[in-house]
Design a binder for these strands. Structure first.
Lengths: 202, 202
DNA sequence: GTCTATAAATGGATAGAC
DNA sequence: GTCTATCCATTTATAGAC
């Protein structure tokens, strides 16, 4: 009845089904939005009955929460970041951030678009955004030492992610054929330039 | 039956009702999202029956389209912008952009969040974003002359707006008591610094 | 132009058999 | 753990009276 949520390896039949449900629900929430997606549609896509779906999740809301767990970025060693110049550190920080967001687009898109309506989601959101990577820590250290100007890193991060997701959406709308396997070069360039402060520098 | 949609002055009773419907629907779409808002809820808030609502709009979709018409920014004279230094022009451009977005938050929020799902909305979106202000034109002129680096202005604009809306949402979530009558200073500062390229400049 | 009443379909969620 | 069948509230939208 409780399923083996404490296992990360999906071995039992039930766990496999549960995982499938999460994957398909995430895809639908991402593409159609939470409210516009019905549990019937999810069940159909997974190939199970709605009743089965409700054995794995208490409700649609519990399912939403399960779909937004982002994977951690491939974090580098602290020592690596500490060797970088300010500019290179900022570049590496940005690269890591947008790479993480890009490879977890569905999760981030769902969180950013549904958070205002679902406070439960915000908790998840801050839990991840506030979890500092080594690049974050190195940035904060240098801000403390006065080597970099101080700013609200979380707010800035939110801004960068919001900007990134908006540009990706824009491109998808006007180039529907676009295959988004890699981060489009113009978007990457714009973001890196923004962070490194050379957007309108001559 | 067709109402006087060609008049901008809301004089007749029907037109007043129609305007009220748009205002209340916009507010609900903004706060709850399109899919999560029912026509019954809108009608109740306006104080009319659903049937009346459907006399003014063919369907929920037509109503959505009616809610996202942004007002034009208070555009300055070209001569004003042409006197500015590059940095001041960028500052003025950003100020005008975020001011327009801020005072039409519901419209921009709805457009940005619902566009991926509703292609009809995208047309509206590009119609407005592509409509160049005088500040836009001056920027493009200087890019052409090589006085400023060239970049995709629309994509950049989308990025700035996405960033702005995300930061506003972030603040609203973590400071629910916040009275958003003016643009929060930290957000304005972050955006201006981004555009002027002095975010991490020392 | 606005109402009441209602159609017709779909929404989330559960009971109970296997 | 999964199914069929079903409950009941809500959904968009319309018919027809006033």
């Amino acid at each position: 009845m409780m399923m083996d949520t404490h296992h990360s390896n999906k071995q039992t039949k039930g766990a496999i089904t549960k995982h499938k449900i999460i994957v398909e629900a995430r895809d639908l929430f991402y593409r159609q939005g939470f409210a516009a997606t019905s549990t019937a549609q999810i069940a159909k896509k997974v190939g199970v009955s709605e009743a089965a779906l409700y054995k794995h999740f208490k409700g649609k809301m519990a399912l939403l929460l399960a779909t937004v767990e982002p994977e951690r970025p491939h974090d580098q060693e602290v020592s690596y970041f500490s060797t970088l110049s300010n500019l290179d550190l900022l570049g590496a920080w940005t690269e890591q951030l947008i790479s993480t967001v890009f490879h977890n687009r569905p999760q981030y898109t769902i969180i950013f678009s549904e958070s205002p309506r679902h406070p439960e989601l915000s908790e998840n959101y801050i839990r991840h955004l506030h979890q500092l990577t080594n690049a974050d820590k190195e940035l904060l250290t240098r801000m403390d030492k006065g080597q970099l100007p101080k700013l609200d890193l979380v707010l800035f991060q939110v801004g960068i992610i919001g900007s990134f997701l908006a540009m990706l959406t824009h491109k998808r709308i006007y180039e529907p054929t676009l295959n988004l396997q890699d981060i489009p070069e113009d978007i990457r360039h714009t973001l890196i330039s923004i962070v490194e402060g050379k957007l309108f520098q001559q």
